[in-house]
Structure formats: structure tokens, C-alpha cells
């Protein structure tokens, strides 16, 4: 009796799981795991399984019929061959690369400039900074709708303003010309990414001790010099986090591109997902090419 008590008593003061084979210890371990098991099951079902399923479907001939019959013959690497040799493959890859690189450069540069600007003391600084988060919090498809209206060729405010100021003579086809559409989509994505970049970089800047700048100023390092020899080295960890997350988020963006340019892709997407699923999962991660 006393021994069992001691062995169950022990884990209370010690967070490590109890050792030993007593039933009490085993129950204790079970209770602890019970806290995390729902999450493990959920992640396995809603993240693990879909990834596995996508991989296996990539090797199958999955058609609309497969949904009814449940039959999807194995075709080996055929789907991958189709995708890689497909006429759209290089375009998609190039567009994805341009989209990602353009977005990252744009949102990081502008985000850094704004973070540096707000890293000084002036009235309303905090209020302005938190309002800057708004584009990040809005539903993507809502922001996309506004941008579609702003960029509208005939009556969008951007073209009206540009023409009013005499900068362009004819309305610019922002969303209908393939090259410009890529530029427009990158621009909108940069706008979406700035708040996130600012808030993380600002946090990083705030963590750099003031004394470093004071010491630097004594040695004549101010302005640009101070940025490169004090700010940048101390910010490096935050910068890598921002860039990694930026790439991850950018590769995941679908709403913006679909909303801005993909009006007629929607029937394909919604009515018959099978046409899409014959494509290996890897290709669906890449941003669709604006037509």
C-alpha cells in the first residue's frame, strides 16, 4: 500500500512520466497521453492522410468515374510525365518562381522600410502600426474583390487616375494581359504581405539594445553605416524567419490569383475536381499561371 502510494505520489512533484510497471503508473501515463491523442488523431486524419492520399493519387488514373466505381488503375509515373512534358509546365514553373521572388522582394523591402520608420518614437506610433495590420486580417477574397475593382481596365480607379494625370493614354489591361497580370498579382500579394513583414521585423528591431547604437554613434557609425553594421547583423535571425514564412505563405496563395484572374477556371475547379486530381499533388502547390 505504502509503496504504491509513493510511486503515484512521485509524478506530482516531478513532471517526468513515471517509471515502473505498476498499474497506477500505467494509468498515469495513459491519462497524460489522453490530453494529446485527439490532436494526434486529428492531425493524422486531416494533414497526414491527405498528403498520403495526394501522393498515391499521383500514381493513379483518377477520373470522374473513379468517384462512382472506386476504381482507379495504377499508372506509375505517367501523371508526372504528363505534367512535366505538358505545354503549361514551364510557364507554370516560371510564373511560380517570378511570383514568389517578386512577392518576397517587394514585401520584405517595403516591410523593412516601414519597420525602420516605425522604430522611432513619435505620437500615434502604436495606433498607426496596429492599423497597418488590417490588410493581413481581412478575408483574402474580400481584398481580392476590391483589387479587382481597382485594377478594372475600363472603370477601375487606377486606370482612371493614371489617365487623368496623363501618365498613360489608353487604359492598361492590368488583369487581362498575361505579362501585366503577373505584375498585378505580385503587387497585390506584396500589399497583403507587408503587414506581416512589418510586425515581425519591428519586433526584431525593438529587441536590439539601444546601447549598441549609442556605442556605434561614438565610433561614427550612424545612418546607413549603423544599419549595415549594427541593425542587419542583429536582425539576421528574424530576417530568416520572415523570409522562410514569406516563401511558405506565398507558395500557398491561391485565393488571390484565382479571384483576380481565374474567373473561368472556377467551373473547372468546382464541377469536376477529378480533372485536377489526375495531376500529381506537387503541381497543385504551385501558383496557377495567370492566363
Amino acid at each position: 500500500m505504502t509503496t504504491t502510494l509513493q510511486s503515484t505520489e512521485a509524478p506530482i512533484s516531478d513532471p517526468a512520466p513515471p517509471r515502473g510497471r505498476s498499474t497506477a503508473a500505467r494509468r498515469e501515463l495513459l491519462v497524460r497521453w489522453a490530453f494529446v491523442i485527439p490532436a494526434i488523431v486529428y492531425v493524422a486524419l486531416f494533414f497526414g492522410y491527405p498528403v498520403l492520399k495526394s501522393v498515391t493519387m499521383g500514381f493513379q488514373e483518377y477520373t470522374t468515374r473513379s468517384f462512382v466505381t472506386g476504381e482507379a488503375p495504377w499508372v506509375g509515373l505517367q501523371n508526372y510525365v504528363d505534367v512535366v512534358t505538358g505545354s503549361l509546365f514551364t510557364t507554370t514553373l516560371t510564373n511560380t518562381a517570378l511570383f514568389t521572388i517578386g512577392s518576397i522582394i517587394g514585401q520584405f523591402t517595403l516591410g523593412m522600410l516601414l519597420a525602420l520608420y516605425f522604430n522611432r518614437k513619435f505620437p500615434l506610433n502604436g495606433v498607426l502600426r496596429s492599423m497597418l495590420l488590417l490588410p493581413w486580417l481581412l478575408p483574402l477574397i474580400a481584398s481580392t474583390a476590391v483589387w479587382k475593382w481597382i485594377l478594372d481596365q475600363d472603370s477601375g480607379v487606377l486606370n482612371q487616375t493614371l489617365m487623368g494625370l496623363g501618365i498613360v493614354a489608353d487604359p492598361v489591361p492590368w488583369l487581362t494581359s498575361p505579362d501585366l497580370a503577373l505584375v498585378a498579382v505580385v503587387g497585390v500579394n506584396v500589399w497583403l504581405g507587408i503587414p506581416f513583414n512589418v510586425s515581425l521585423l519591428y519586433g526584431g528591431l525593438q529587441d536590439i539594445p539601444e546601447e549598441l547604437y549609442e556605442a556605434g554613434a561614438l565610433d561614427g557609425a550612424t545612418g546607413w553605416r549603423a544599419f549595415w553594421s549594427i541593425t542587419w547583423p542583429n536582425l539576421r535571425a528574424v530576417v530568416s524567419v520572415v523570409l522562410v514564412l514569406g516563401v511558405v505563405y506565398t507558395l500557398k496563395v491561391l485565393d488571390v490569383i484565382l479571384g483576380l484572374t481565374g474567373a473561368d477556371q472556377r467551373t473547372r475547379l468546382r464541377r469536376s475536381p477529378p480533372t485536377r486530381t489526375t495531376v500529381p499533388s506537387s503541381s497543385s502547390t504551385s501558383a496557377q499561371a495567370p492566363r
Binding site: V43, P50, K53, L254, P273, R276, S284, T285
Partner: peptide
Amino acid sequence: IAQMIPGIVIANALYVV
């Protein structure tokens, strides 16, 4: 890792299930 999986990959497989 889960946070890096594009939603469309999950959505695709969930459609089948």
C-alpha cells in the same frame, strides 16, 4: 510541417473522402 502544407492539397484529398 502541417502549417506548410498548401490548403489545396488537403482540400483535394478531403474531397475524395
